[in-house]
Computed example of a mutant assay.
Amino acid sequence: MKNIFKNSALRMAGQGTVVAALVAGTVGFVAMNKTVELNVDGHTSEVRTFAHDVGGVLDAEGVSTGQHDLVSPSLSSSVSKGSDIVVRHGRKLSLTVDGKSQVYWTTASTVGGALKGLGIRAGDGRLSASRSESIGRQGLSVRLSTSKSVKVLADGKVHRVSSAAATVGEAVKAAGVSLGSGDRLSVPAGSPVVAGSVVQVFRVSKKHESTTKSIDHDTTRKESDDLFKGQTKVKTEGADGVRTVKFATRVVNGQVVSKSKVSSKVTKKPVTEVVLVGTKEKPAPEPSESSSDSSSSHSSTSTTPPSSTTGTAADSLNWTALAQCESGGNPRAVNGNGHYGLYQFSLQTWHAMGGSGNPINASPATQLALAKKLYNAAGSGQWSCGSHLYD
């Protein structure tokens, strides 16, 4: 009986030990398992954890952190039931203010919050992004143009403007100055605006103009057996040519700054002058008359024209028609090619026929007499209008 009681007591003692161990383990489990509040970038959740510190909680929840992130309390801080853990991830903000760029790290989630946190006043400046725009974990690039005073010199006037324009070109436009396609600025249009800048507008235009230059004509001399030696006759009148040169002129603010040749073209070709040079022997001098006739002739030289060997075929020709064609019937007609009078004698031919001085100073009768003499000696080929003798 004693053994029975003894064994029963032993069993009851062992069961008590097991129960005590189970109770102690349960109490320890409950003590290690706790609920904490986790706020990550504004998103809050309750999590149950066995972790002893903040770092353990974040590792268990898969929340990674870096050097630019904010964790409160610190990663090494212990946690207990009801602890609050706040994580704000850092965001890269590439900010360009009036052309100068700098990189900032911020835990703010919006552009406005980031600028406020960085102590940057935008004022009435111009932002490339809305102040309420979110800054993601990948970061954001923002441009800020602050308001600046600028003077624009254009068309003889000073235009003053206070503008948050990001570039010089935008500031010029804000000043109410329009630019033509060829106009230029003293500062590149894409340059950032600097407070107190003075920008000059250069009005640039191009004009085209042309000038003409004379091209001297050549002269060719050809022998002709239709003319006596010493005689010349212009067969083809020479004429100078014309060369047209075109220029492009660049004008800046009303002043010509450059002039370049665009083209050069002969617009009128020169005409070569052709001069006939006589090769035919002159006729032998006429027989001298008697001394009495000579005396009579000398006494009347002032009123009587030289002999034209009258009584020949020359007398029956239409000399009036020839004179009309050659000189318009003008005994004092002068041709620029060196021909004179009713029948357009050259001085060489006139003198060869016995004339003196210039034909225009001789009477019409004297001019006719020497014209007939020339016809008897050389025919109608001496005149370009010679065919009219037979009208």
Rank of each mutant, 00 (worst) to 15 (best):
V204I: 10
K233Q: 15
S163H: 06
L227V: 06
D155F: 08
D183C: 04
A175G: 05
V158D: 13
D183V: 01
S181T: 12
D226R: 11
S163D: 05
G182P: 00
Q200P: 00
R243V: 08
S197N: 10
A239R: 14
G230H: 12
K222G: 03
V187F: 07
A164K: 04
G182D: 13
A154L: 07
S162A: 10
R203K: 13
A195N: 15
V199I: 15
V172Q: 03
L185T: 05
A195L: 02
I215C: 13
L153N: 04
D225E: 11
S210V: 09
P188A: 12
G182W: 07
H217N: 14
G176T: 04
V242I: 15
V194I: 14
L153Y: 13
A175D: 04
V199K: 01
S224T: 03
H159E: 05
V177R: 02
A189N: 03
G180M: 02
A154R: 00
F202R: 03
K222L: 11
G196T: 07
D216I: 01
T167C: 03
Q231S: 12
G238Q: 08
V158P: 04
G180L: 08
K222P: 01
V177L: 07
F228A: 10
S205P: 08
H159P: 05
G180V: 03
V194E: 14
E209D: 14
V204D: 05
E209N: 10
E223T: 11
H159Q: 00
V172E: 01
V194P: 02
V161P: 05
V158A: 14
V161M: 08
V198W: 00
S178Y: 00
E209I: 12
T167K: 02
D216G: 12
T212K: 12
S163I: 06
H159R: 06
G190Y: 04
V161E: 05
S162K: 13
V242W: 13
S210H: 12
G238R: 10
L227P: 07
D155K: 11
R184W: 01
T220F: 00
D155Q: 11
S197Q: 12
A154Y: 01
R243Q: 15
H217T: 02
E209Y: 05
R184S: 13
D183F: 07
V194Y: 01
L179Q: 03
L227T: 05
K213C: 04
S178E: 08
A174Y: 00
S214N: 07
S162P: 00
R243Y: 04
P188D: 14
V193D: 09
D225W: 01
G196D: 06
K213E: 15
S163Q: 02
V158H: 10
S181R: 11
K207Y: 08
V158Y: 10
G241S: 12
V234Q: 11
V198T: 14
R221P: 00
R203F: 04
Q231M: 13
G241C: 10
V198P: 03
P192N: 12
F228L: 09
D216V: 09
R160M: 05
L153K: 03
P192H: 12
T219D: 04
G180W: 09
R184V: 06
